[in-house]
Simulated assay, not measured.
Amino acid sequence: MADRITANLPSRDFGATAAFYGKLGFAVDFLNDGWMILSRGPLELEFFPHPTVDPLSSWFSACIRVDDIDGLLAEWRKVGLPSDATSTPRLTGTFKLPDAPRMFALVDEDGSLLRCLENGVADE
Rank of each mutant, 00 (worst) to 15 (best):
A2C: 00
D3G: 12
R4V: 03
I5D: 00
T6Q: 04
A7C: 00
A7P: 01
N8R: 13
N8E: 09
N8Y: 15
L9W: 03
P10F: 06
P10M: 09
S11D: 01
F14W: 08
G15Y: 01
G15R: 09
A16D: 11
A19H: 09
F20G: 03
F20T: 02
K23I: 06
L24H: 05
G25Y: 05
G25I: 04
A27D: 15
A27F: 07
V28S: 07
D29T: 01
L31N: 12
L31D: 10
L31M: 12
N32G: 05
D33P: 15
I37M: 15
L38M: 09
S39L: 05
S39C: 07
S39V: 02
R40Q: 15
G41D: 14
P42T: 10
P42I: 05
P42C: 05
L43R: 08
L43A: 15
L43Q: 15
L43F: 12
E44F: 03
E46Y: 02
F47A: 08
F48A: 10
F48Q: 10
P51T: 07
T52F: 08
T52M: 09
V53Q: 13
D54L: 05
D54M: 08
P55Y: 12
P55D: 10
S57A: 13
S58K: 12
S58Y: 11
S58M: 10
W59T: 15
S61R: 09
C63E: 12
C63Y: 11
R65H: 09
D67Q: 12
D68C: 09
D70S: 14
L72G: 01
L73P: 02
L73S: 04
L73E: 03
A74P: 00
W76Y: 06
K78D: 06
V79I: 11
L81S: 02
T86S: 06
T86K: 04
T86L: 00
T88V: 15
P89K: 02
P89D: 01
R90G: 04
G93N: 11
T94S: 10
K96T: 14
K96W: 00
L97Q: 14
D99V: 00
A100W: 03
P101C: 03
R102L: 05
M103Q: 13
M103S: 11
L106E: 01
V107W: 08
G111I: 11
S112M: 07
S112T: 13
L114S: 04
L114H: 09
L114P: 04
R115A: 10
L117A: 15
L117I: 15
G120N: 14
V121A: 14
V121K: 13
